[in-house]
Structures are given as C-alpha cells and as structure tokens.
C-alpha cells in the first residue's frame, strides 16, 4: 500500500503538470532532492537483485524523478518561480551526510550513501512545505499529491511492526527516519483532512 501510494503521488504530480501546463506550487528543490535520494539509494540495482517488482519500482522512481526535474527545468520552466522556492538545501544535505556517517550498517561508501538517502528522504519535503507556508494556499491537485506522498511512508509503519513480530527483522535507521518523515506531514494532513476533503480550498490561517 505504501509503494502504491508513492506511485500514485508521482502519477498525480505528472497529471497536475500536464493538465495545468504548469509546475506552479511545486518546489524544484524538493524534486531535485528526490533525484539525489533515489540515485544514492538504488545504486544496489547493479548488484543486489531482490525481485522484478523491486527492480521495476526502483527504475521507475529514478526515471520519473529525473523526468519531473526535466519538465520543471526545461519544458515548463517559465511556470516555476524560484523566488518563492528559497529553502536552503545545504541545511539538509550537511546534517544528512553526518547522520549517514554516524548511523549506518557498515562503514563503507555504498552503505553510507544508503543511510544518507534514508535521512535525506525524511526531510526532502521541507523546501516544498516551506514554499506552501509562504504562499499560504495550494491547488487541490497539489494537495492530493502531497497527501499521497505523505501517506506512503506512514503506510510503511504498520509493515515494519508486522515484520518485527513476523520475521523478527527491524531496520532502526529506516524506522526512525520514517517516523520523522511522517511527523513532518502532520500539520499538512490536519489542514488536508479538515479543509480539502471537506470540499474547501487549502488555505493556511493567516
């Protein structure tokens, strides 16, 4: 369900860009961070085979995130306003690299990159949420995208509990980062459920 929600979020995002011929309201910085997240995490495509499903999803997430970046940077460039997308990503990249160096399952390059990608994914939404707060409102379709994207990691939580009891497996790095990631959406979800799903416009209180 988490994976499908993630997949759905990307489909919604592409649908929003295509139908409105615009990437207004979407943070380029957040989208660029996702490209970095997927490239650093899915390096194991080249040596760690899990399943056709797993490989297909990894390829899709890399390809679609690069494609969204292309759409924003070239095809719909005039519709993107960098002056409201001002979050400093350096504040995210530095700490995530440090977290990757401290918390990893083996002190080697690929494992550090994997851990870095987990932490970075947890906070990659911040430039987008920052932008949302600055503008104070959003198109409904953009909020559906964010809701699906936020639900995705939240849906992993019951899966982790299940695997803890069922398979006796726990991945502390993914769990802690996943809880942080989900936590960052709580404010957004509150407004989404109380406004957008009641048929009102997404508007933040002044």
């Amino acid at each position: 369900a988490g994976d499908i929600s993630h997949l759905a979020s990307i489909v919604i995002l592409l649908h929003k860009i295509y139908t409105s011929h615009s990437c207004r309201g979407i943070s380029f910085k957040t989208q660029a961070l996702y490209v970095l997240v997927f490239l650093t995490r899915y390096l194991d495509l080249f040596w760690h085979w899990v399943s056709l499903y797993n490989t297909a999803m990894k390829v899709f997430f890399i390809a679609s995130s690069v494609y969204v970046l292309y759409l924003m940077k070239y095809k719909y460039r005039p519709t993107h306003d960098p002056s409201i997308d001002t979050f400093k990503v350096e504040y995210l990249l530095g700490p995530c690299l440090i977290l990757g160096l401290i918390f990893n399952y083996e002190f080697k390059f690929t494992e550090i990159l994997w851990s870095f990608s987990i932490w970075l994914e947890a906070v990659a939404i911040l430039p987008q949420l920052f932008m949302l707060q600055r503008t104070g409102e959003a198109e409904a379709i953009t909020t559906h995208y964010l809701a699906a994207l936020g639900a995705y990691r939240a849906l992993y939580i019951p899966n982790w509990i299940w695997r803890y009891f069922g398979d006796n497996v726990v991945d502390p790095i993914a769990v802690v980062a996943g809880l942080v990631q989900t936590g960052l959406y709580l404010d957004f979800f509150y407004v989404y459920f109380t406004k957008v799903l009641q048929g009102q416009k997404f508007e933040l209180p002044a």
Binding site: D3, V50, N54, M57, W114, N159, R163
Partner: peptide
Amino acid sequence: ADKNLVKDEL
C-alpha cells in the same frame, strides 16, 4: 537480523 531482508524495501 539479516539486513538484506530489510533492504528488499524501497
């Protein structure tokens, strides 16, 4: 725990 088992997640 076998961490490869966990890394079958996305």
